[in-house]
């Protein structure tokens, strides 16, 4: 009983933290996904001048932990004369991570488009940009949707790392409640369940979409 009463007391603050988490997650995706598509096209481009920089960004973005990227953006960049708010730093850092990971997912999707269809576009005299725009990208994105959804769940979880840069998101709120009430276990458990309440349904949905897609392709 007392636990539930405690939780009811924590809930308003945690809910507003959850809202911050969701907004930062969406912002990272909105900025990162188009960048990821650009990187995917860049890293499979014919020209080296395009390909190598794109591959470098992708490997750095995937090789460096999101937590480290967050520290670089929030604590590091001011030394280089660029000071960002914690919200801005969180959005940009997570967008970079999103771009790097989604570019690999999208590249996989683009490569799944059969070679014969590309030959057909050539034989029909369609330009390469047209072939990408009308044939490859629409199909590639479709193949990439389930893994992109899976990644969306991970990047939502990653917003919790922004607690380290003083962003008042869900974990940050929970931690500050914990340090003032010393009921760490209780408040952290509730925060964990709130994360799970978002991620588990999202994962189940992803599984379902994936099954439907694979049925459609067969």
């Amino acid at each position: 009983m007392t636990v539930l009463q405690d939780w009811l007391g924590f809930l308003p603050q945690l809910a507003s933290g959850l809202w911050v988490s969701v907004v930062v997650c969406l912002a990272a995706i909105v900025v990162g996904l188009p960048l990821g598509l650009a990187l995917a096209l860049g890293s499979s481009a014919g020209s080296r001048a395009l390909r190598w920089p794109a591959i470098a960004v992708v490997e750095i973005g995937r090789g460096a932990p999101a937590l480290v990227v967050l520290q670089v953006f929030y604590f590091g960049l001011p030394s280089a004369g660029l000071t960002l708010s914690s919200t801005m730093a969180a959005c940009l850092a997570l967008a970079l991570t999103t771009a790097a990971y989604t570019s690999e997912i999208i590249r996989g999707g683009l490569q799944a488009v059969p070679r014969g269809e590309l030959e057909a576009t050539e034989a029909l005299g369609m330009s390469r940009p047209d072939a990408l725009r009308f044939v490859v990208i629409p199909q590639g994105i479709r193949v990439a949707i389930p893994p992109l959804m899976g990644f969306g769940v991970l990047i939502f979880q990653a917003t919790s790392l922004a607690y380290t840069i003083a962003l008042p998101e869900l974990l940050g709120r929970a931690y500050s409640i914990g340090s003032s009430t010393f009921q760490y276990l209780s408040v952290l458990a509730l925060a964990g369940l709130m994360y799970a309440a978002v991620t588990i349904p999202a994962s189940l949905l992803t599984d379902r979409v994936e099954r439907r897609m694979s049925r459609h392709l067969a």
Binding site: Q157, A158, S160, L161, Y163, L171, A174, Y175, G178, F182, Y184, L185, L188, A189, A191, G192, L193, Y195, A196, T199, I200, S203
Partner: peptide, 21 residues
């Protein structure tokens, strides 16, 4: 699903602050 659905940093805090405290 619970282990994967809750962010790693929350698990660490649960163990360190939650149980440890």
């Amino acid at each position: 699903e619970l282990l994967r659905g809750i962010p790693p940093i929350v698990w660490i805090f649960l163990v360190y602050f939650g149980i440890g405290n």
